[in-house]
Amino acid sequence: MSPISFLEIEGLRKSYGANEVLRGIDLSVEQHQVVCLIGASGCGKSTLLRCVNALETIDEGQIRLDGDVVSGEGTDVDRLRRDVGIVFQAFNLFPHMRVLDNITLGPRRIHRHSRAAAEAQALELLERVGLAAKAGAYPDQLSGGQQQRVAIVRALAMNPRVLLLDEITSALDPELVAEVLGIVRDLAAEGMTMLLATHEMSFAREVAHTVCFLHEGVILEQGPPERIFGAPTEPRTQAFLHRIVEAGRL
């Protein structure tokens, strides 16, 4: 392992009762890097992401952000979460708020930005994802793809240092996937540090600097996408990718 990485996960273990979901995860993400987690459903991708921003407590191991230990008892989780944004599979927008209020809630209540400043920033971000016209709409008036773009903007408005993306296209109709992935691609190009769980293999291959194959709570294999997709060494990685190819998804 290199001297010190931006986000470091070491020996992470997590159980739900008798079910051990994560069984010793070691992973590091450098600044401005995109790391993709792939693997079958239930392999622990989502749990790993939720542990990173403390939505789940961890049983063993350590998580460090920029050299600072951000796991364990007494961690200021609210402080941590300002630095670590997350976007969920099901968008989780606040249905009782307009798009603009969804986005400005965090900046106004946490960063104490004025309404005007928060709304100016939100509109600028919405402009970038092509949704400035929807600022006054409620989430249930938007398509899934639009909702997910708003959710990404909501996370970005907090100026996070790392963005976690938890299968953000899995709940979308196929024709809406591209508009969301396009934004992630732009973010990657701008140097946003991202850790993402995904089933979109060709997208992972395209944007990731590192791809990790998770299997039953451990990272079986990791490396640059060309190697993981082109010449995987682990038989279980090969089997997984074979199934993906058979399903016509790669």
Partner: peptide, 23 residues
């Protein structure tokens, strides 16, 4: 998931209740 979304932004429990859950 609403609680998770609000907390993940860095909102405290009371703020989450006040702005997201109770309304």
């Amino acid at each position: 998931s609403q609680m998770a979304a609000a907390r993940s932004l860095g909102l405290s429990y009371p703020s989450t209740m006040r702005f997201v859950i109770v309304p």
